[in-house]
Design a protein around this nucleic acid. Structure first.
Lengths: 151, 151
DNA sequence: TATTGTTATACTCTATAACTATA
DNA sequence: TATAGTTATAGAGTATAACAATA
C-alpha cells in the first residue's frame, strides 16, 4: 500500500497542500471522536455557538458560523430531531426563532467538546508542546488578521 | 460591518476551526493569484505532479494526487482543452494514456507556481519569518506522520 | 479475467430564488 | 415593503457502477 504513494516534493511542500491535508486529517480524527455522541464537527460548532450566548434568532447564529440561513435550517432540523435543542418563536417578533439547547444538548455538548479536545491533542501529538502552542498561535494570528485584503 | 461578526471564543479557538479557516483563506488567495493564468489550485497541483516526473498513466497521476481516476478524467480534459497538456496511448500498453505537458503547459506552470509562491508569502505575512518557518515545519510533520491511525 | 480510460449516475454540501408569515 | 424561516432547485465536487478497449 505504498509503492507509488507520495505526490512528490514540488507539491507536497506547498503551504496550500499542507493546510488542506492537515485540515482533512483533523476533520477525520474529530469525526471519529464524535461518533459516540451522534454528532459531527459542524453540529458541534453549532452547539458551541448556541451555548456561548443564546442568539436571538437562527439568522444571528448562522452569521456567527458564516453559513447561509438556508443551510442553518437543515442543521437545526437535525439537532432538534436528536432532541439537543428546541425552537420557539421570539416573544417580541414572532418571525424569529429563539434556539435553545435542551438539557440533553448541554450534556452532549460538554462531552463532545471534551472528546474533540482529546482529538486535538492526538492530532498535535507528533509535535513538541512548544511547537504545538506555536502552531495554534500562528494559525490564530493568520485567521484573525485581515491578511491579504489590504491593497 | 462588524456588529455580530465573530463566532465566539469557544468555537474560534478550536484547532479544527483554525485549520479550516486558514485553509479557506489560503485557497482564496491562491485562487486570486492564479486567475491571470486561467487555472485553479487543483489544476496547478496536477501540473506540478505531471512535471515532477512524467507519470506513465493517468491512474498513476491520480494516485499521487489522491483523487479518483474518474475525477482525473475531467481535470485532464480541462487542461488539455487549454492546450497545457497532451494525451497519447502508451507504446507498450495501449490501455494507458501517457500525459505530457506542452510547452505552454510548462510555461504556465512556471509562472503560476511563482504566483502561488507569492500568495503563500502574503498569507504568511502577519507572522515573523521564524514563526512562518515553524508553521511550515509543524504542518509537514503532522501531515507526514501517520498520527492518529495507531490504535 | 483483469485493468485503463471513460461515461452515467448518485450523493454531499452549499448557494440562489421563490414562498409564507409576520412586521 | 421588508425581514425570518422555510422549501425547492440548482450548482460544485466527488465517489460508485457500468461499459469499451486492451492486456
Amino acid at each position: 500500500m505504498s509503492s507509488t504513494d507520495g505526490p512528490g516534493p514540488e507539491l507536497s511542500r506547498r503551504l496550500g497542500y499542507l493546510l488542506k491535508h492537515a485540515q482533512l486529517r483533523m476533520a477525520e480524527q474529530t469525526a471519529k471522536a464524535l461518533t459516540p455522541y451522534g454528532i459531527d464537527g459542524r453540529e458541534l460548532a453549532v452547539l458551541l455557538v448556541l451555548a456561548d450566548r443564546e442568539p436571538a434568532s437562527q439568522q444571528q447564529a448562522a452569521q456567527r458560523l458564516d453559513i447561509d440561513r438556508t443551510t442553518m435550517v437543515a442543521l437545526l432540523d437535525a439537532l432538534e430531531g436528536k432532541g439537543l435543542l428546541s425552537r420557539h418563536p421570539h416573544a417580541d417578533d414572532r418571525r424569529r426563532n429563539v434556539v435553545e439547547l435542551t438539557d440533553a444538548g448541554h450534556d452532549i455538548l460538554r462531552r463532545a467538546a471534551r472528546a474533540s479536545d482529546d482529538a486535538e491533542r492526538e492530532f498535535l501529538a507528533p509535535l513538541s508542546p512548544r511547537a504545538a502552542q506555536q502552531l495554534r498561535d500562528s494559525l490564530q494570528t493568520i485567521v484573525t488578521r485581515p491578511g491579504g485584503q489590504s491593497s
